[in-house]
């Protein structure tokens, strides 16, 4: 599929920690992934697994202190973004122009005291160097492109005058207005209603496909990405535990955590009388991580290697499919 496509973003061994009250919270502990051109990838994980922090690091939006990027490289168009200072001119040119971000909370990521038009045209003016009137016109077109009815009138609205779905559309309009090469959508639909979720996802994916942009969707919902993503990275406790193309990963999950996630969601065609298979225990605290596999305390297949040897790191589990587990449980029954 994307074999000949060029790599747009490559993150190598990114490590981010937060230092709070004298303890180190290892939010991201050595994450590597890549996004090719025109590719849609998904980063899936539960709250606190470091999926959002990873994305914030790409744009250097980590509040520091307490956060600190301890190591790794983020290569975008051949340049290491981490070699730039967060407030440098280079970074500012990248944010919003080359890489845009859509946040989960559409209310808090729009400024309540400025009109929608003001906020869209500001971005366009900054990055495209056009004058106010041109920027306003382009902004109106951008609103039209995301399916907001009566865009000219809507430009004069304030965020509070719009519904959640509308606001999320505005954010998408802002993100695509400057022709970004990569859009990072952090839980773009979590705050929305189910039917609105479907609308927003379809819209986002359609725009991305039309413009040939790459997209990273960060989400906790495996189902949301099954339909759209080309590849999936599953994160657990600050590390990628499994990666692969969507089809392979969903059909033949290899890491016990991925298996557990898939087994714990109820299905529309499932047997109602059968109990769900939850993952036992709770996610680990990130300030006490050892070099062992973080999933070990919850794993239904612990083996000697897991207890005695450090975290295995990603290893091939098939074609374009990597997993960080000593135990090969492919095809194994999940009967805990």
């Amino acid at each position: 599929m994307g074999e000949e496509k060029k790599t747009l973003l490559e993150v190598k061994d990114l490590r981010v920690s937060f230092f709070v009250d004298g303890s180190e919270i290892k939010s991201v502990g050595g994450v590597s992934y890549q996004v090719r051109e025109q590719e849609i990838i998904a980063i899936v994980g539960e709250s606190g697994c470091g999926k959002s922090v990873t994305q914030m690091s790409t744009l250097q939006l980590i509040p520091s202190p307490p956060g600190r990027i301890l190591g790794g490289e983020i290569l975008f168009e051949g340049k290491n973004l981490l070699s730039f200072k967060p407030e440098s001119r280079e970074m500012r040119r990248i944010r919003g122009k080359k890489i845009s971000m859509i946040f989960q909370e559409p209310m808090t990521s729009l400024n309540p005291v400025f009109t929608i038009g003001n906020q869209i045209s500001e971005v366009i003016r900054l990055h495209k160097g056009v004058n106010r009137r041109e920027a306003w016109e382009e902004g109106t077109k951008a609103l039209e492109a995301v399916g907001i009815p009566d865009p000219a009138a809507r430009m004069k609205n304030y965020p509070f005058e719009m519904s959640g779905g509308m606001r999320q559309r505005v954010l998408i309009a802002i993100a695509v207005a400057c022709g970004s090469r990569l859009i990072i959508a952090d839980e773009p639909t979590t705050a929305l209603d189910v039917t609105t979720q479907a609308q927003v996802m379809e819209l986002l994916v359609r725009l991305v496909r039309e413009k040939g942009t790459s997209l990273i969707v960060v989400t906790h919902n495996l189902g949301l990405v099954a339909r759209y993503a080309d590849r999936i990275y599953v994160m657990y406790a600050g590390r990628v535990v499994e990666s692969g193309c969507t089809k392979d990963l969903l059909k033949h999950p290899s890491h016990p955590y991925t298996k557990g996630l898939l087994g714990s969601v109820p299905r529309l065609d499932g047997d109602r009388n059968q109990e769900l298979i939850p993952i036992r225990g709770v996610p680990p605290k990130l300030d006490g991580l050892t070099d062992r596999c973080a999933f070990l305390p919850r794993c239904p297949y612990p083996c000697e290697a897991c207890k005695n040897r450090p975290y295995p790191g990603l290893r091939p589990a098939g074609e374009n499919h990597m997993t960080a587990c000593y135990v090969d449980i492919q095809g194994g029954d999940y009967d805990e």
Binding site: V194, T195, Q197, A198, N221, L222, G223, L224, V225, A226, R227, T246, K247, L250, K251, L262, V265, R267, L268, D269
Partner: peptide, 10 residues
């Protein structure tokens, strides 16, 4: 509503 629900079956 039913059709909007994402599933994990590829």
């Amino acid at each position: 509503l039913l059709s909007a629900i994402p599933g994990v079956d590829y």
